[in-house]
């Protein structure tokens, strides 16, 4: 067995440092069920943070480039800062079990538009068990919405229970779909203990503010 010389060769996994020894970009994953508002949250985060951070986004679409194209159409970032990974009908595989395509998309972005401060990795819409590998991201956000049923926090599952941040999205719709926000918040608290939960409506004045503040705090801790 020869342990090779690692200088000048690409990193194997999620080393926290670049080859030159500086700390690489913080990577945050966003997962959650189809239609819960992952892409809208990514777009809002880009608008909120793009003036203060060097940002890039990797999308994992299930069968099209729609999420990447939405971000391009909304012009939240220049096109060279958005990359789409194809996932072969299994979005959770590409973010958890076989992460190489995502790692390469991140490395290519760093090479082409870096140095980056933050990379947002958006999962394709999936189910409640889909979580990101620690080899791919440093922190993960799980996005659910009030219209998907107010019993989702109670049902738990790896995304709801263990994500570093849980977003309960589209709170403006709660009265129309009969969802009980207080119950969702209490159930989430019961599942998650001290892990934070943000209830947000991107249509409200506050918009993505709380989530952006959470990201800023992670960045501060990462670069400290």
């Amino acid at each position: 067995m020869h342990l090779g010389d690692h200088h000048n060769t690409p990193a194997v996994s999620a080393d926290a440092h670049r080859p030159d020894g500086t700390r690489r970009a913080l990577r945050i994953g966003l997962g959650g069920p189809v239609g819960s508002g992952k892409t809208a949250t990514v777009a809002a985060l880009c608008r909120a943070l793009r003036e203060e951070l060097s940002l890039a986004v990797v999308t994992n679409d299930i069968y099209t480039r729609e999420d990447a194209e939405f971000l391009l159409r909304e012009a939240v970032l220049p096109p060279e800062r958005i990359s789409a990974v194809e996932t072969g009908a299994c979005p959770h595989t590409a973010i958890r079990d076989d992460i190489s395509a995502n790692l390469e998309a991140i490395e290519d972005l760093e090479e082409e538009v870096g140095p980056l401060d933050l990379v947002l990795v958006e999962s394709g819409g999936d189910n409640l068990t889909a979580t990101f590998s620690k080899g791919l991201v440093d922190a993960q956000i799980f996005v659910i919405d009030v219209a998907g049923g107010d019993d989702i926090p109670r049902k738990g599952g790896p995304g709801v229970s263990t994500a570093d941040l849980l977003i309960v999205n589209k709170t403006d719709l709660a009265p129309y779909v009969g969802s009980d926000l207080a119950r969702m918040a209490a159930d989430a608290k019961a599942q998650r203990g001290e892990l934070p939960v943000v209830l947000q409506s991107l249509r409200s004045e506050e918009g993505v503010r709380d989530v952006a503040d959470w990201v800023r705090a992670r960045i501060a801790a990462w670069t400290a």
Partner: peptide, 20 residues
Amino acid sequence: QLVRAARATWPHRELDALAG
């Protein structure tokens, strides 16, 4: 993608050289 997985699984100077 294979060279990445292989280098992590069976570290070897020939794989490092190939990746470079």
